[in-house]
């Protein structure tokens, strides 16, 4: 693992190991440019929040990291993203293998129309991770425990995932993502469709997961960013305006635009 050396941008990141290194990322949807030369270092085993007004490019950037943008025909990505020391846009990279290491949780809970058990087992099965039935069951259980859902669903694993409440569904989706033990989990506004109580549970869970995973979370809510993240990156109109420790971004932003956003003048 390489140590962070981006001294010019943020001296404090030196103490953390960097896992994702994005350099000069430009993204185009057809003729429209969505991201302008974004460079960002994401530290390992920390929660990094991507904030900014709607349409600022934060979700676009998130989807570059596991190449979900590949699914959009007209989308074109320029630049380099290193995960560890590998360029994930290199021609030899297999997106299937890549996405097995970089999980994703979406804005709206999207459990498969299958049983709770099969939802969590899906990734394990396609990647052939569990060698036996008992191992499969064990891994499903530990994933559900990690997602703080086990106690609530252990008696009804065979019921459809869609029968759960919204918050439970989202935790099921998190369990499904961590079942295959990715290194990084990308979260795209994971609590925006949930009520405050369910949101609190998800935030608590994110904090717990930090021990084992690197989390990058897109959020609309600045309070949420302040609560769950250690690092924050502020995007505005396709540009990365500012990036640093959450505390310093929220208390002493360097850029006027950041200042305006966190005080509610743009957004």
């Amino acid at each position: 693992m390489t140590l962070a050396v981006s001294t010019s941008v943020e001296p404090e990141t030196q103490i953390d190991q960097v896992i994702v290194k994005a350099s000069d990322i430009n993204v185009f949807y057809g003729d429209k440019q969505a991201l302008y030369t974004v460079s960002l270092h994401v530290p390992q085993n920390k929660v990094t929040a991507l904030i900014g007004p709607s349409g600022c490019g934060k979700t676009t950037f998130l989807k570059c990291i596991n190449r979900m943008n590949d699914l959009i025909d007209i989308c074109r990505v320029e630049g380099e993203i290193l995960v560890g020391d590998q360029d994930i846009y290199a021609p030899a990279v297999d997106v299937v293998a890549l996405r097995a290491h970089i999980g994703m949780v979406f804005q709206k809970p999207n459990p498969f129309p299958k049983s709770i058990f099969d939802n969590v087992a899906y990734g394990l099965r396609i990647h052939n991770i569990a060698t036996s039935k008992t191992e499969l069951a064990d891994r499903v259980e530990s994933s559900l425990r990690s997602a703080a859902l086990w106690e609530e669903v252990k008696d009804r694993l065979d019921q459809p995932g869609t029968s759960l409440s919204g918050g439970q569904q989202q935790r099921l989706c998190i369990a499904r993502a961590i079942a295959i033990q990715p290194k990084i989990i990308l979260m795209d506004e994971p609590a925006s469709a949930l009520d405050p109580i369910a949101t609190a549970k998800i935030e608590e869970l994110i904090d717990d997961l930090r021990q084992n995973y690197t989390i990058i979370i897109v959020t609309h809510s600045m309070q949420q960013a302040a609560r769950v993240s250690q690092y924050t990156a502020f995007f505005h109109m396709g540009e990365l305006v500012e990036h640093g420790k959450t505390k310093s971004i929220f208390t002493a932003p360097n850029d006027e635009r950041t200042q305006n956003y966190i005080t509610g003048r743009i957004g």
Binding site: V83, G84, D94, V96, A97, L98, H101
Partner: peptide
């Protein structure tokens, strides 16, 4: 993890086939 994203395990090769 130098080649995690490029290594074609037999299982992965079968899936692509």
């Amino acid at each position: 993890m130098t080649d995690t994203f490029t290594k074609r395990t037999p299982h992965l090769a079968r899936r692509h086939a």
